[in-house]
C-alpha cells in the first residue's frame, strides 16, 4: 500500500492544478469577453428563406447611415457573392450588419474587423463592428458553398475623408437595444427570439 499512497499524493498534486488551470482560463475568458464587450451572434429572428427578398430588412439591401457614425448594412449572401459586395463607410464608423443567405450556408468573415458569423438560410444574423482605420477590409465567405466558393469575396472600403467620429452624445440605439435583449436572452431564451421576430416583421 505504501507505493499506492505515494501515487495518491502525486495524483492530488496534479489534480488540484488541473482544476485550477481551466477555472482560471474560464475566468480570464469571461472577463475579457464581457469586459471588452465582445459578443457572439445571438438569436435575431427567422426569415423565410424562400421569400427573403420580399421580407424586411432584406427587401432593401445596401448601406444606410442611421445615426452619425452609425451605419446599417442589409446584406444577402448567395452563390457566389454578397449583395452589397462593396461597402463604403468613413473611418471610425460602427457598422451594424443584418445578413442572411438566400440559398446554401455561407459565412461573413472580415478578418481585420473581427467579424465572423455564419449566414444560414432561415436565420437573421446580426453583428456589429467598428472600422477605426481607413483602408480596404477583405470580406470573405468562409464556409464551403459550392464549386466557386473560393471566388466569393467582397470588401469594406473605409475612407478617411469626411470621416465623422461616433457622436459621444448619441449612444447608438441599436446597441442599447442589444444590451437589453442580451440580458433577456440569459433570463428567458425564448423571449428574445420572439421579440426579434416581431421586430423584423
Amino acid at each position: 500500500m505504501r507505493q499506492g499512497t505515494t501515487v495518491y499524493l502525486y495524483e492530488l498534486a496534479w489534480i488540484l492544478p488541473s482544476i485550477a488551470i481551466p477555472v482560471g482560463m474560464l475566468a480570464a475568458l469571461v472577463v475579457t469577453a464581457f469586459g471588452a464587450n465582445i459578443h457572439l451572434p445571438g438569436a435575431a429572428g427567422r426569415v423565410d428563406p424562400t421569400k427573403v427578398t420580399e421580407t424586411a430588412p432584406f427587401d432593401a439591401l445596401g448601406v444606410k447611415e442611421i445615426a452619425p457614425g452609425q451605419y446599417e448594412v442589409r446584406m444577402l449572401a448567395q452563390v457566389w457573392s454578397f449583395t452589397p459586395n462593396e461597402i463604403r463607410v468613413p473611418a471610425g464608423s460602427t457598422v451594424h450588419f443584418w445578413a442572411t443567405s438566400r440559398d446554401v450556408v455561407h459565412g461573413l468573415f472580415i478578418p481585420k474587423a473581427n467579424v465572423n458569423v455564419m449566414l444560414l438560410p432561415g436565420q437573421v444574423a446580426h453583428v456589429e463592428a467598428r472600422f477605426a482605420k481607413p483602408g480596404e477590409y477583405l470580406m470573405i465567405c468562409h464556409e464551403y458553398c459550392g464549386i466557386a466558393h473560393h471566388t466569393m469575396a467582397g470588401k469594406v472600403i473605409v475612407t478617411s475623408e469626411g470621416g465623422s467620429a461616433p457622436h459621444p452624445n448619441l449612444p447608438p440605439q441599436a446597441g442599447a437595444g442589444k444590451a437589453g435583449a442580451r440580458s433577456a436572452a440569459i433570463s428567458d431564451p425564448r423571449g428574445r427570439e420572439l421579440a426579434g421576430l416581431e421586430e423584423r416583421k
Binding site: H39, L40, P41, G42, A43, A44, R46, G107, N116, V117, M118, L119, L120, G122, Q123, V124, A125, H126, R182, A185, I186, P189, R192, E193
Partner: peptide, 8 residues
C-alpha cells in the same frame, strides 16, 4: 458564430 442560438 451561428445565428439563432442564444449567447447564454
Amino acid at each position: 458564430t451561428d445565428p439563432g442560438i442564444h449567447e447564454g
